[in-house]
Design a binder for these strands. Structure first.
Lengths: 201, 201
DNA sequence: GTCTATAAATCGATAGAC
DNA sequence: GTCTATCGATTTATAGAC
């Protein structure tokens, strides 16, 4: 049992390294431009070895998405219960923007059908996605009850709008411009998202 | 001259058909998943003939982007001068959301470097991009002077935020949900963008 | 300029030895 | 499980006849 467990741990460490590499490459180049050869080279193993761990390129991407959803769930759970719902939502959104700005947010093309199939077939992915959505959804409705978030906006729209910050191109544009540091960019985008472009009087 | 002009017109019609097909395919599948074979089949000509009109796949994409920028410039010019700047900005943003929702907004991966090179090397693209940016930028600063748009937000951030509505995934998600018609979706996303998620009191 | 046919390169995936 | 070597399919791009 001890040797089996050790072996499993070695395996897990290697698979973690693979998923981390996939995560980085997905964030850098996206799914279509990421090649399995690159992933193998990045991890330092042969491509055939990689396919002993993951059945396909789509499975690699799904594993990276599960990883980032797990991190998201952890950030959600780390929010103090006494905090107002709006603040929790902003904190999670801020975290997502920071991850994206750090070049560590994997991005998937929603058009790719083979990828969609793989994701929808992954129980770990679906379960985590529902868990995250449910928790954020509860906060959204609480914030709307509080009057902090506009009750006229369907909670579904609020959820999608927050989710979309993870692949918002605006932070990248502002970073490329070089006029603002990361914290300022996050503050600007977060404020634009929650306050809107129009003046508040 | 007349025959030459006629020939040129025939050529132009064919090239317009090519660019329209590219535009549709870019909107549907994105640059990486769009193949030149598909474009040729869609237009109804051989692939080799296509390459007589455009030098590369990147050149095809650039032509589609020039097309949509031209349309954008037309929409901008069609705004009545007496309209308040904020209303003009909202009208243009609304138009972009409608085009995207209709599946006619070409989308390019900002990560692809060969594509970036092609776009930056296209004078027509750069000129139109600057023209559109300058006109929108002037309206943004006017709206900030009016107090309609928050003067605390750098105009650059406002511009990027409006530009980003052209590739916002939220309209597509809402459409896939099937609970709202196109006009409602546009209204919701537009309101979220300009008013923000938080309540206005 | 349009076609058929094919070159040239890339990439996902696998065979088979160790 | 890891490796080397390679298959098979796809895709961009071009050659050459008409």
């Amino acid at each position: 049992m001890a040797r089996g467990s050790f072996r499993e741990q070695v395996l897990k460490v290697r698979e973690d390294a693979i998923v981390a590499a996939v995560n980085r490459l997905l964030a850098e180049k996206g799914f279509d431009l990421m090649t399995v050869d690159e992933v193998a080279a990045d991890v330092g193993i042969a491509k055939a070895s990689l396919y002993k761990h993951f059945a396909s390129k789509e499975a690699l991407a799904a594993a990276a998405m599960v990883r980032v959803l797990r991190l998201t769930a952890e950030v959600i759970e780390a929010q103090p219960p006494s905090t107002p719902a709006l603040d929790k939502l902003q904190a999670v959104t801020r975290w997502a923007l920071q991850v994206q700005l750090a070049g560590e947010m994997p991005t998937l093309p929603s058009q790719n059908s083979s990828l969609r199939t793989e994701l929808l077939g992954s129980k770990a992915y679906i379960d985590l996605l529902m868990q995250v959505s449910d928790q954020l959804g509860a906060w959204i409705e609480q914030a709307q009850t509080d009057g902090a978030i506009d009750p006229a906006i369907p909670s579904e729209v609020v959820l999608y709008t927050i989710f979309a910050r993870a692949c918002d191109p605006v932070p990248g544009f502002l970073k490329a411009g070089g006029r603002y540091d990361d914290k300022t960019i996050v503050d600007l985008v977060l404020a634009t998202c929650f306050n809107g472009l129009q003046s508040r009087r």
